[in-house]
Amino acid sequence: MSMRMEFLTTGEAVQADWEELQPLFHKVVVRATHGEFTVDDIYRMAMDGSIVISLVREAGKIIMALAFEFRHYPQKLAVNYLAMGGKKSHEVMARFLKDFGVWAKNAGADWIEASCSQGMARIFAQHHFVTTYQLVRLDLNHKGEAS
């Protein structure tokens, strides 16, 4: 059965699929983020329209969830992937990345970007993403202290 991508453009649409989306985003937050956001943050930002959620269904079941935002630079506009979780990431990207890129370009974006783990960067590289910057951090909250 073929895959199909959907964009959740209303709060009602997010709510309708949230039960299936939440565990996919939970895995991303637990495995790949470093406290930048929670699953509840993803939900809240989707509901207030500051991010967009898209999903991929196969045989009626959600197999991939994506959360992204438009990031405004002084001279450029990017679509920034915040979270991408689920199954068949290679197949999903091979099937939908070109169309997603056309959609993003039509929306005014100059590129698609993501801050991600090295493993995810390797997956993105197989789909023509290039490393532009290295992200470094100095943690100002010592271990054991409240964040």
Rank of each mutant, 00 (worst) to 15 (best):
K61T: 15
M93R: 10
E113Q: 08
E113A: 08
A83W: 06
A67D: 06
L66G: 11
A114V: 14
V14E: 04
Q126R: 13
E12I: 04
A107D: 02
M5S: 12
V130Q: 10
H128M: 02
G144I: 05
I42L: 13
R57Q: 07
M45Q: 09
M45P: 00
R4D: 00
F70T: 11
V92M: 10
R95Y: 01
A121L: 04
T9H: 13
G85V: 07
F129M: 01
A125N: 05
N80G: 00
M1V: 05
T33V: 07
N141L: 05
K76S: 13
C116S: 09
K143R: 12
H127K: 02
T132M: 09
L135P: 00
W111K: 07
Y81Q: 06
T132K: 15
F25M: 08
M3Q: 11
F70H: 13
I42S: 01
K105E: 05
E20P: 00
R31H: 13
D40A: 04
A78C: 01
M3G: 02
G11Q: 13
H128T: 11
W103S: 01
L21G: 02
A114I: 06
A146L: 05
L135C: 02
F96I: 15
L66S: 10
W18A: 07
V92S: 06
L140W: 08
Q134I: 15
R57P: 05
R31Q: 14
G119L: 11
A59W: 03
K105M: 04
F96P: 07
E19Y: 02
H72D: 01
E36D: 08
M47A: 07
V39H: 08
D48Y: 04
T10I: 10
L55M: 15
M93S: 11
H34I: 06
V130D: 06
Y133E: 11
S115F: 07
N80Q: 03
K27Y: 06
D139F: 08
F100W: 15
E6Y: 14
R4G: 00
E12K: 10
